[in-house]
Design a protein around this nucleic acid. Structure first.
Lengths: 228, 228, 228, 228
DNA sequence: GATGAATGAGGATTCATTCAT
DNA sequence: CATGAATGAATCCTCATTCAT
């Protein structure tokens, strides 16, 4: 956790600064451990220890282990999707380019961060935390898939992509991304041996296959022509 | 679980049969609950109750909860991959057809069964059960990906597919399959809302995109020519 | 707890018999400790130990410490008031005799038993257990005071007692009884030093004062005359 | 709590005054809460909050929760009994009048104040605080009962009261008083429903019964004659 | 074999108490 | 002095595991 403000401005400010930092440190530690070992198998004391505080301190900031979990999810999500989304506001280019930018920026904004562990966490704990699963689905799944859908739709309208079922096309983009995230948090259960996927290459390769897979083949009709 | 001895030879054998069926019933119940709630959040008493026996009886067959877990994984895997694999022994056809058959039969042999929950289970618990994760990876991941790899390689050699990185191609096949399995066990965390994917359609659509994505484009060189 | 059936009929019956006896033994132990140290200051482990079982066993019979408390109150009450009440069904005699019998039989049925500790317990914990306080008030206070009231009313109607405010008369009977119970459970806080009140003498003396205090004085008008 | 220094000599003394008032405010808050919820169920933080200071400040004045409790008892007692006692120094009148004055002034000096909660508190906590129970018994029970005893003895000597066991007579006076105090602090556990006793009437009525109960009946022998 | 009563180690949570600011 | 963040011992409660019947 290299933080840029490791220098303490004044001795008197120390406590105060810690206090403000505590929730974040705890959420960080909790995310790590929850992702690594699962919610139930993680002891609050471990979380506290990893955050450098005692058990009791954790409960000063989060009323229960459950609430800690929920806060972890909310915190890890917050902003990230918005950021990712807003990247597209000004983006100009073909649908192909957009899809590429979509996957690349998703990697930078989400996949490469600790938030990537959230996917595993939510898959594991969804049934134990129905309300937070609903929150996740509302805040992450829906907007995320909606964005991809818009890009794909645009591609179809512009004749860059074939006319195929939109949902299927969305999943063809989503599944490699989900797979990449999971592979990073599940010790060889997704990917052979201890082989760690190289994200850049992996994304480029998948993007290549998808773009090819969605593109018009010689015999395909262009969307306009079809309507005619 | 179609067992060959469904006919009851003698009335006295009834109890005997139940006794023999016990472990299977327990494993079944355990798989269901582990998949649904996770390993830690599942109580052995629940497992026993669902299998219709008492808590003590479970420990007659499995020395500990951990061993029960391991047995669940081993049992759920056993044979399934072998079956799937052996499907190809006699299969004749193009690589495209093989890939289609690969995904379809995988769905029938694995995806549609309760074993599909294993993926979620292993992803969640891999780090808590390193040895069983290794077993899973050795028994499932490696042979599964190897099979797909062979099919793809064959397609490239025969000029049906483009020359691309084999690993990437493998993941493009694996990830939609994994995604489908997860979507069936994680309440809306993968797929929008309560939308349940229609497996046949989903597989057909993904297969379509993949085949298109892997196929030769007009400008692509044939594999033979390349070597020349 | 000398139980007459210390001989164990058959070795196989032992477990079963304990199981049936457990709740009672736990309630007994709990009543003792709650009365002695208060609810909060009593640890469930102590209760279990005094009942001769382990911590976990207690929770097999009572879902929480709170429920244990409630069960203690319900159990200690149950039947006792009914018994006391039914004593009067067939009782014949003057109101004076009835009042004497009332206090004496109350002592035998309630005061002398461990249930006497309930009064202290309820006084201490009423505000922490509003629902059980309401139960106590409905099951104990109201029927108890109602019985005394009937006796006193009868005495007034028959001209044995003066016409005075019924409530005040009721309290003049109740307060010495409550005081006696409390004095037995509050180490010298009610009664000087370690002096233990002799209940028989105490009751006889208080009864004497009360009867004298309620009786007609020479100048008092008889109830009938008053109405005329 | 009328304190003699209600006038603020100088603006600078304001804070000083608060500082001096702190312990009293804390004791007040603590008495309230201890009486309401019991010692164990009261959190020191609540006490501090009610006194308008922080948790830490409480420990500046009282080294522990236990010591706070003891201070509450000592403080609530201090002076009150002395005051009550000294009322009698100059009191002239019959023993009957004295007994009436005794109960009335007790009500004004003690019963009507928050100190009345002490009785409930001591009854609940006596066994958890043996030393403070001994203190209470030495400072409250003994002098209080001694005073009543003197009044009653005087009445007997003067022939106003019958010759009966002094202790019993004392308890006939004490128990209604104790009962009244408890009824004010135990939500319907003493008195039916939400009926609040009217203290003046209650005391008058009990006094009436007691005086009647202790008085000479026509057939009673006068004390002198008895000795003859 | 089967049962389920009993156990007790383990973990979440509370709260009196400390102490740096 | 006053504060309130931090602590960790204490306690409730859970649940895998044992074992007498």
């Amino acid at each position: 956790m290299p933080s840029p403000n490791d220098h303490i401005p004044a001795p008197s400010a120390r406590r105060e600064r810690r206090k403000e930092a505590r929730p974040g440190e705890l959420l960080n530690a909790a995310l790590d451990l929850f992702v690594e070992k699962g919610f139930a198998a993680t002891r609050v004391e471990e979380v506290a220890a990893r955050a450098g505080v005692s058990k009791g301190t954790l409960f000063l900031y989060f009323p229960s282990k459950d609430e800690l979990f929920k806060a972890v999810v909310r915190e890890s999500i917050s902003g990230r999707l918005v950021e990712w989304n807003s990247d597209f506001e000004t983006f100009q280019g073909t649908a192909c380019e957009m899809l590429g930018y979509c996957m690349t920026s998703w990697w930078e904004r989400v996949g490469a961060t600790k938030a990537s562990g959230l996917t595993k966490l939510m898959i594991s704990e969804a049934s134990n935390f129905p309300d937070i699963a609903a929150f996740y689905q509302h805040e992450v799944i829906q907007p995320g898939q909606a964005l991809i859908r818009r890009v794909l739709q645009r591609g179809m309208e512009r004749g860059e992509f074939r006319q195929i079922d939109l949902d299927s096309a969305v999943y063809s983009v989503v599944s490699p991304m989900v797979f990449l995230m999971l592979s990073r948090h599940s010790q060889g259960v997704c990917v052979s041996d201890q082989v760690t996927l190289d994200p850049k290459k992996y994304i480029a390769a998948q993007l290549g296959i998808i773009l090819n897979g969605l593109s018009l083949r010689p015999g395909d009709a262009a969307p306009d022509e079809k309507k005619v």
